[in-house]
Simulated assay, not measured.
Amino acid sequence: MGIGIPKGGSNRKWDKEDKLRIVKRYLNEGIGRIALAKEENISGGMLYIWIQKYLDEGEQGLVNNKKKDNHYAAIHTSKTLSEVDRLRLIVAKQEVEIERLKKGYLVKGAGANKEFVITKDVSLK
Rank of each mutant, 00 (worst) to 15 (best):
E59I: 14
E39A: 10
N64T: 07
V107K: 08
M46F: 11
A92Q: 10
A112S: 14
G4F: 00
T77H: 07
R100K: 10
V63D: 04
K68F: 07
K66Q: 06
W50H: 00
G104D: 08
V96H: 05
K16S: 14
Y105T: 09
D18H: 13
L87A: 14
V84C: 03
N11I: 11
S82L: 09
V23F: 00
N70M: 01
H71L: 15
G44Q: 05
D121S: 12
I22D: 00
N65W: 02
N11A: 13
R12I: 15
E115R: 14
F116E: 11
K19S: 06
W14C: 04
K7N: 12
V23D: 04
V63S: 10
T80P: 06
N11G: 06
Y26W: 02
Q60R: 15
G111Q: 05
Y54M: 02
K13R: 14
Q52I: 10
M1D: 08
V63Q: 13
V107L: 08
V91W: 03
I22M: 02
L62Q: 08
I51H: 03
L36E: 02
G61P: 01
I22T: 04
G9F: 01
L89R: 05
E59R: 00
G109S: 00
R12S: 06
L20N: 09
E95S: 11
S82T: 15
V23I: 04
L47T: 05
D85I: 02
G4K: 13
Y72Q: 05
N64Y: 10
G111V: 01
T80Y: 02
Y48C: 08
G2M: 12
N11V: 11
E99K: 15
R12Y: 07
I75W: 02
V84E: 15
I34Y: 06
E57L: 11
E29D: 12
I118Q: 05
L55N: 10
K67L: 14
A73R: 11
G58S: 02
Q94A: 15
M46Q: 12
S82Q: 00
A92L: 05
Q60F: 02
S82W: 03
Y72N: 04
L106G: 04
S78I: 06
T77I: 09
L20P: 02
G4W: 04
P6H: 13
I90H: 09
V122R: 03
K114W: 03
E115W: 01
K13V: 10
I22W: 05
D85S: 09
E17F: 11
E17G: 03
D15W: 07
S43Q: 01
N65K: 15
L20Y: 09
L20H: 08
V96S: 10
V63M: 06
L89V: 05
I34G: 05
D85W: 00
M46C: 14
D69K: 15
R88K: 15
K53H: 14
H71A: 14
A74K: 09
E99I: 06
E57R: 09
I98K: 08
G104E: 05
V23N: 08
G32M: 00
L89T: 06
E83L: 11
G2I: 13
G44R: 04
K120E: 10
W14H: 14
Y72D: 06
G45N: 04
Y54I: 08
K108D: 09
L47M: 03
I75R: 03
R86I: 01
S43W: 03
